[in-house]
Nucleic acid binder design. Structure first.
Lengths: 231, 231
DNA sequence: TCCGGTTTTCGCCTTTGAATCGAAAACTTC
DNA sequence: GAAGTTTTCGATTCAAAGGCGAAAACCGGA
């Protein structure tokens, strides 16, 4: 039997604010201190162990870089297998998408930093392709699932949520429409509380939370759905 | 470095007619002649070789069971890694979805047969889960992409296409609606030809083909799309 | 206390695309 | 030519998202 190495890699994404009011989608990377590719930035990950499946493995590997209890969502992305994707002995990689809610700010090791996904530094191997794949997966799932819960704090105003979505999707989002779409789907629950207005005043915003914090497909808009039989 | 085996598996799906007029979604399986799991039905696949990536590997392995030129579409599904998913030395599996258009009827080896996905025989290892995953992927992509081209013959009538979709989706489909949805999306092109009516008469049906035979997302119904800026 | 400024919220309307229905068209056989 | 079949097409309804502006609820300062 042909034996080869298998690693797991995770693109952990979070919407973060670098300067106040300026949110951006960022990814967790660590800088390589040794060859190969010294100085380049890598996704966290490592070799799969004998007694773990890849889902367990990715959580174990991530624990070295970040508090895994702050991971609100992890899902498999794809497996990358080009024979020359890394130098030396062949290694297959299964990539994951991880999400951290925006109210967390995990302690990071010295070699590890957040980087804007739209302004990546020099990355190692095929990691840039993996990061972009993770971003695309997040963007499409924000549309047709309730995955927003994994980016948002436990409770939030519509304006805050709008900024989160806007940073993650990379385009402007209307607060009016966001609220209507999510609440029509039953994803939003009002807490009854209100946030205190900012220094410039204004009507106090109502606080919401996601109805359900398990990922749930909103029906990938079931086109060609079965005939209703309704008359 | 921890070395382990890596195999690729393919769930090749086709809409086939067992008795005339009765279409069903079927999957290509071969029956195991040796331990482990003698007599159970397996997905085609095999060990990844040193110089190939998994996409090449799956096509190579499939060539042993079916004419690969008849494969109209192949895509990666997911990687399965439970340590005990097969007995003996550990093997990771990356599963693929393959599609064959309904006008093909490939020559098959003696140990290989088509089986209805909704009436599977006793399958080996975790292969049933993979088959169901493949079916679900096909069903959702039929809705929001033009993947139908991979199931359909080069040219077809709307009625034929309706039966194909109906068998693949597992529910009735309205011909009227199917035609309008696909042509609004620009996926259908009329050939100008018409099919000859059946033995019972009836208006001759117009022949169509898919505008484009590369997979193309129809916009996963871009909810929360960017503001139009239109006034 | 009143008033302008600010932010959120809500209702109404438009737009888009899918589902339904029924009638017309085009062919068969008798 | 009449009756029966099947396809095709237009008109209508229905559902969900996007756009817009007015009303609500707060601020600070005159």
């Amino acid at each position: 039997m042909n034996k080869l190495g298998h690693e797991v890699l995770a693109a952990v994404l979070q919407v973060r604010s670098r300067s106040p009011g300026q949110l951006s989608l960022e990814v967790l990377l660590w800088q390589r201190a040794r060859e190969p590719q010294v100085g380049r930035w890598s996704l966290p990950g490592g070799q799969l162990q004998a007694d773990e499946d890849i889902e367990r493995s990715v959580r174990r590997q991530l624990a070295e870089k970040v508090d895994v209890r702050q991971l609100s969502h992890v899902e498999q992305l794809a497996t990358f297998s080009a024979p020359d994707r890394v130098p030396g002995p062949r290694v297959i990689a299964t990539a994951f998408l991880g999400l951290v809610a925006s109210d967390n700010d995990p302690e990071l090791p010295d070699d590890t930093q957040w980087h804007r996904v739209d302004a990546l530094p020099r990355t190692a191997f095929d990691h840039e392709a993996i990061i972009l794949r993770a971003r695309d997966r997040l963007r499409s799932k924000l549309s047709y699932t309730n995955l927003g819960f994994a980016l948002a704090p436990p409770t939030f105003t519509i304006s805050e949520l709008r900024e989160l979505y806007s940073a993650a999707l990379g385009h402007r989002v209307s607060a009016t429409n966001l609220q209507r779409v999510l609440s029509r789907r039953g994803q939003l629950t009002t807490t009854g509380e209100t946030a205190s207005p900012g220094p410039t005043g204004g009507r106090p915003a109502a606080l919401f939370r996601f109805t359900c914090r398990d990922i749930r497909v909103t029906d990938p808009v079931a086109v060609l759905r079965p005939p209703s039989g309704r008359r």
